[in-house]
């Protein structure tokens, strides 16, 4: 297995006529980690990945693998494996032949075809024409194509779309495993919750621009933590919090207190003689921070 290289976007811009799909985008993706490439629909994820893979020519800037553009790689499929969202199959060709065609073109050993079909769990359907495949089976075939050269870098556009719960669980573990072997793994998604269990880093874009990048945990600190608290006598609780000078908003499951410390809230309630029915820290602020970051883009 070739070592994973650093993926680098350097001031990449793409305009389609009047539409600026990607706007001066710069970031790097490190080997040995799973990086989530996130953004709402139309943010420019697919366009960015297609520029990285040499399928779309940037209006400005460069995207490279260890400093080398995709078109200049001497063994592209053995360096970078990719699965893009569009179903790119001839419906009349079998999965096995689909993979054979590209293995031959890239000069890979024909034995890889059977191996990757096995890896993604398609062996049983390998000799059926792809036209009859379900969405999930197509996703798996796309992944088999990405893996065929045993590449050090994986670029996957929405790989979880269409997979069943078992498939989702499997791919999450698989991505972790690939990164654990030292490969560079870049996965896009329009849902943070879809990838948050498997990514180390996030790169978030909205309307073609970078809005956040860093480790997943960096998203948590983006929003102040909150404590959820409730009482059978909610008015009394509200009065106690107000008296103690703690700001809060009323949520569906209780009051959201703008204070990071549940113990302090509990003390305030106890001192005021208010019985509590709920007291806990807000479990995940990730999705909220994500939505806040892409906010304006999301209303498009």
């Amino acid at each position: 297995m070739p070592a994973g290289s650093v993926v680098e976007f350097a001031n990449v811009t793409k305009r389609f006529g009047a539409v600026t799909a990607v706007d001066d985008l710069s970031f790097t993706v490190e080997p040995g980690r799973v990086t989530g490439f996130l953004g709402p629909n139309g943010a420019g994820k697919t366009t960015s990945l297609r520029m990285l893979l040499g399928l779309v020519t940037p209006t400005a800037g460069t995207a490279t693998f260890g400093g080398v553009r995709y078109a200049d790689l001497s063994h592209p499929l053995a360096t970078v494996g990719s699965a893009l969202e569009a179903a790119s199959f001839h419906p009349g060709r079998t999965a096995r032949n689909h993979l054979r065609v590209y293995a031959i073109g890239a000069g890979l050993p024909p034995t890889r075809v059977g191996e990757v079909l096995q890896t993604v769990g398609l062996t049983e359907y390998a000799d059926r024409r792809v036209g009859g495949y379900s969405l999930g089976m197509r996703q798996r075939l796309g992944l088999a194509f990405a893996l065929i050269g045993d590449p050090g870098v994986l670029v996957l556009d929405e790989p979880i779309n269409g997979l069943d719960p078992e498939g989702i669980k499997w791919i999450r573990g698989f991505l972790r495993e690939l990164a654990g072997e030292g490969r560079t793994v870049l996965v896009s998604s329009h849902l943070l919750s879809e990838v948050q269990q498997s990514v180390d880093d996030v790169v978030i874009i909205a309307r073609g621009r970078l809005v956040h990048r860093g480790p997943l945990s960096s998203l948590e600190t983006e929003t102040a933590p909150q404590v959820v608290v409730d009482s059978p006598t909610r008015e009394a609780l509200a009065a106690a919090l107000t008296d103690a000078g703690i700001r809060f908003t009323e949520g569906r499951t209780g009051l959201l207190a703008a204070d990071p410390d549940p113990a302090r809230i509990g003390h305030v309630a106890f001192a005021a003689g208010v019985e509590l029915s709920t007291l806990h820290r807000q479990k995940s602020g990730l999705e909220d921070s994500f939505l806040a970051l892409v906010g304006e883009g999301h209303t498009l």
Partner: peptide, 11 residues
């Protein structure tokens, strides 16, 4: 859309 895998295998 098989130009995508084609050009990925042979840029």
């Amino acid at each position: 859309q098989t130009l995508t895998p084609t050009f990925l295998a042979v840029p």
